[in-house]
Amino acid sequence: MSAGIELWPPAASHHAQQVDLLIGSFGAMVWLLTIPVFVLMSWFAIRYRRSREVNRDHAPTRNLWVEVGWSVIPFILVLGFYVWATMLFLDLYRPPPDAIPIHVVAKQWMWKFQHPDGAREINNLHVPAGRPVKLIMTSEDVIHSFYVPALRQKQDLVPGRYTSLWFNADKPGRYPLRCAEFCGADHSAMGGTLIVMPPQDYAVWLGRNRDGGMDGTLAQAGARLFRDLGCSGCHSAAASVKAPPLEGIFGRPVALADGGTLIADDQYLSDSILLPNKQVAAGYRPIMPTYGNVLAPEQVNALVAYLKSSRAREDSK
């Protein structure tokens, strides 16, 4: 049966409270602008109803300044809210550098999460309270959307590309997580729980679950894959086939065959594995086979994590 009626969803982050404040203030302004219209409209209709003797002389049919006034003033008021809402939105695209990266892969109809140190889970996502978390997300099949109402945030997961979302949940608790983009038959069953834990509890949970998924950290799993797939056969200085060296490539500029340059990021590394001919590094021939049919998205994530970690090793030298 019904669990009662709840008029306002819980807010698990500072951002969520900001969104509530924004919609509350905007709602107040909206009422301020509309109530006079509704009141005047009803009052005019009743006061000037047919057969009633009232003064109808000098009924105006145009007035330029009135028109300009009621177009421009509300527009400027709304523009103020536009600036506010856009600033809040831009914050969502500036994750702090120390955010914990968690990989998310969605498929019909489940959520798969990979923590940086190897713990894996399905449909439930454990995060520490008060620490920024960055989700690096992709989909195996159709478009899904990661939605946690308590965070007031959602982001689509698009096959073939990475999208990301970061948050800092400061209130421990269990919050529903839902798929918001229609994704087929069991769309409505594609839910889970975001579990925000005090940091010490999270550490304990991680310790218990580290071996729950792949053994070792994500980067270690990636290193093993790198070896098993024979990537080093080409991508190493000693190899007979000439391919770009990959040590420490993450975050560095890469010159491309078509003359452009880009910074090697998650998207570039993943594309280079799945669609190797999309952006070919300058000075190399486009001969790498695609691994699109060989690797699952989680394995690509592991490889990318490994390449990232090789940057960290280089930097620490």
Partner: peptide
Amino acid sequence: MLAMLAIDVHVTD
């Protein structure tokens, strides 16, 4: 309201 970016992120879909 839906045109406001931060609100739309929450209520779209």
